[in-house]
């Protein structure tokens, strides 16, 4: 049945990689999740390093913060672009909202690791409880991101004057409000493109994560893992969820701090 009974003729001389044992001491599913995450790390790293590369190819805004106006001649200051919070109009609250989003995602990572810990103890009630908190955190984060995008797309009332090539292929100078994939009021076109692409790809991962968490929550609640004899699925989905948090930590630094 087990690997031990098939280990006929395996002497200690064969060593860790000689066969008849599990050198990595992890299940197939967990290993594959790790290697998938490794490939996803490369994908996100490529995006984020591209962001950095394009960012340093533009001059940074150097004037006083109070007089900042968006222009596609220089890269904008993040704390002056992301300074709005829901329900309060016209208040300058730099990075407050994105700080709350970061707090929510880190908290959901903590409740996830508590669910994994409960899974190790086969404690169904605790697993279900912590998974539910994690789902709540993930869904709240997605809601916040939807608001953030909405605000970013619609922009400020004042807007800013930009010189750019419009969809008719003409060079025009006009007041731009908000952002789209060709022009935005905050900075060079690639600023909004990278913002949409990278936070969008991250949000897509969070969406899949919430879906997987819900699946896991359901299976735990109806007792499938008890029948199976282990709660390893919680651990595997936990790995994915922590990865999503890990990526956000880097997105937060690159987009909102630097």
């Amino acid at each position: 049945m087990s690997a031990h009974s098939t280990a006929i003729g395996v002497s200690s001389k064969r060593g860790v990689w000689g066969g008849g044992n599990e050198p990595l001491k992890a299940s197939y599913g967990k290993l594959m999740m790790w290697f998938f995450l490794l490939s996803d790390i490369f994908t996100f790293a490529a995006f984020l390093i591209t962001y950095l590369s394009i960012r340093v190819s533009y001059p940074a805004y150097a004037g006083p913060a109070g007089e900042f106006v968006g222009s596609n001649e220089y890269w904008p200051v993040p704390e002056l672009v992301f300074d709005a919070i829901p329900f309060v109009h016209g208040v300058h609250a730099p990075l407050v909202f994105v700080g709350i989003m970061t707090f929510i995602l880190i908290s959901s990572s903590v409740t996830m690791v508590l669910a994994v810990e409960a899974g190790h103890r086969n404690d169904r009630n605790d697993v279900v409880k912590w998974l539910l908190w994690t789902i709540l955190g993930g869904a709240t984060f997605l809601g916040c991101q939807a608001w953030e995008w909405n605000h970013f797309i619609h922009g400020t009332e004042a807007g800013s004057t930009m010189t750019f090539i419009n969809s008719m292929n003409q060079l025009v100078t006009e007041v731009v409000h908000g952002a789209n994939l060709s022009v935005n009021e905050y900075g060079p076109g690639s600023f909004a493109q990278l913002f949409f692409f990278i936070t969008g790809f991250h949000g897509f991962h969070v969406t899949i994560g919430v879906f997987l968490l819900f699946l896991c929550f359901y299976q735990a609640a109806v007792g499938i893992y008890d029948q199976r004899g282990h709660y390893e699925m919680v651990e595997k989905i936990g790995l994915y969820w922590h990865f999503v948090d890990l990526v956000w930590v880097f997105v937060f630094t690159l987009f909102y701090l630097i």
Partner: peptide
């Protein structure tokens, strides 16, 4: 579905 696993 009743748990056969021991809760630690």
């Amino acid at each position: 579905n009743k748990s056969t696993l021991e809760v630690q």
